[in-house]
């Protein structure tokens, strides 16, 4: 059993390890190690295409995470007041949203957006005062943010709601009892209590969007995110530069995930034992 588990872990992590090791390879060819060097990191960071893709990715990740965090937190708070059958339906929909494969979300979002644009664009054009100059809605950064934000919102709702549900209701009553208005209670008691979950939700949404290839591939239009850039360069062969990019993305994602976990765990044990 031990050996089996070890084999599984090796199978999972050796390719990642190889990428990280080869990103420091001094030689040009991915097949043989020729000593240590960080030149590929420098090359990757100096590549304008990489930098542009990175910028797109960062913009999309930050915007969609912000959107998802705000909408998700509000939804989680609102769901507190919902019970019975409607609650069950909402719960089921949330978990489905998280479990549906990315490719399904990618295709369906693409179809939905394209249908919507086909319907809206003529309408805008017909209402536009000067013929031929009407703006066209198209796929791009906007649709990336929308698709990622929508998906990540389900994540945020699940994380924040777990925290809201675990909150002692009597704290809210105690606050009201001491004269705080409903908004005062929200600001001084509810928000500080659920802040770790909100922050963790934001970080997870950010990494999700930053790393996502499948959904982005369908809805990006002419935009290039970092994963899409990596994918298209790989068709021309794996270069150490790609390894360096992959390693950097991995490092950033891991750091953010660990940070999110730490925040969630710390937030959990801060309540008194009794």
């Amino acid at each position: 059993m031990r050996v089996y588990a070890l084999a599984v872990y090796l199978f999972l992590y050796i390719p990642i390890g190889v990428i990280a090791v080869f990103s420091f390879n001094a030689g040009r060819y991915a097949a043989q190690l020729q000593g240590f060097s960080t030149q590929w990191y420098g090359k990757a960071l100096a590549n304008p295409f990489v930098m542009e893709a990175l910028q797109t990715s960062a913009t999309v990740a930050a915007s969609s995470a912000l959107l998802a965090t705000i909408a998700g937190t509000l939804a989680a708070l609102a769901l507190q007041g919902v019970g019975g059958r409607p609650r069950m339906i909402f719960d089921a929909l949330l978990y489905i949203a998280v479990m549906v494969p990315g490719i399904v979300i990618g295709i369906s979002t693409l179809i939905a957006l394209v249908t919507l644009f086909d319907w809206l664009n003529p309408m805008i054009a017909s209402l536009w005062p000067v013929a031929g100059t009407a703006p066209q809605l198209h796929l791009g950064t906007g649709s990336l943010i929308a698709a990622h934000g929508l998906f990540a919102m389900a994540l945020v709702v699940i994380i924040v709601r777990a925290r809201v549900a675990g909150m002692d209701r009597s704290l809210i009553e105690a606050s009201a009892d001491l004269g705080a208005t409903p908004f005062g209670t929200f600001r001084q008691v509810t928000l500080p209590q659920i802040a770790p979950a909100i922050l963790a939700g934001f970080l997870l949404s950010f990494t999700f969007s930053f790393d996502d290839f499948i959904i982005a591939f369908f809805v990006a239009g002419s935009e290039t995110t970092l994963p899409i850039y990596v994918f298209s360069s790989i068709r021309r062969g794996v270069t150490p530069e790609i390894n360096a990019i992959g390693t950097m993305v991995l490092a950033v994602s891991l750091m953010v995930l660990i940070l999110a976990q730490t925040i969630l765990r710390r937030g959990g044990v801060r309540a008194p034992e009794e």
Binding site: D168, S170, L171, A174, S175, D177, V189, A271, P272, E274
Partner: peptide, 12 residues
Amino acid sequence: NMVFQHYALFPH
């Protein structure tokens, strides 16, 4: 004002 059964002190 009320003193709650489990005190309901604000942990933060």
